[in-house]
Amino acid sequence: SGVAKQDITAPLPSALATARIIDDLGSVSYPDGILSPKIELNENAQPGKFRYDRDFLLQFMSICKEKPDSLPALDAIGIEPSEQNFSLSRGGSGR
């Protein structure tokens, strides 16, 4: 494949960066035990313009864990977990 021809010093692009967009949901089959998106949500859908039900979307939660390349350092934009809530969740008695 094309990947093998790349300069070995360059980091391999993530699957996310190189994966192509599904434009026909009907062309995709899922492994046993994985729910397909609800059909009725995508009747008359245009290519690549899909709606997804919650049960379908939740199936990705435990699989897609990789931090996106474009996510900035959270503390650099002020997103920091509250100390107070951490101590509460570690068995503090609250107030």
């Binding site: 996310l16 939660m61 897609c64 864990k65 996106p68 900035p72 002020g78 920091e80 809530n85």
Partner: peptide, 28 residues
């Protein structure tokens, strides 16, 4: 107001969700 990230796929949404602070742990 800080722009955190843009995304356009289900897979990218979950990568973000799994690497960001949930509301219960945000400051006031």
């Amino acid at each position: 107001i800080k722009r955190v990230i843009s995304f356009d796929s289900v897979e990218e949404f979950w990568g973000l969700y799994n690497n960001i602070v949930p509301p219960s742990q945000l400051p006031q």
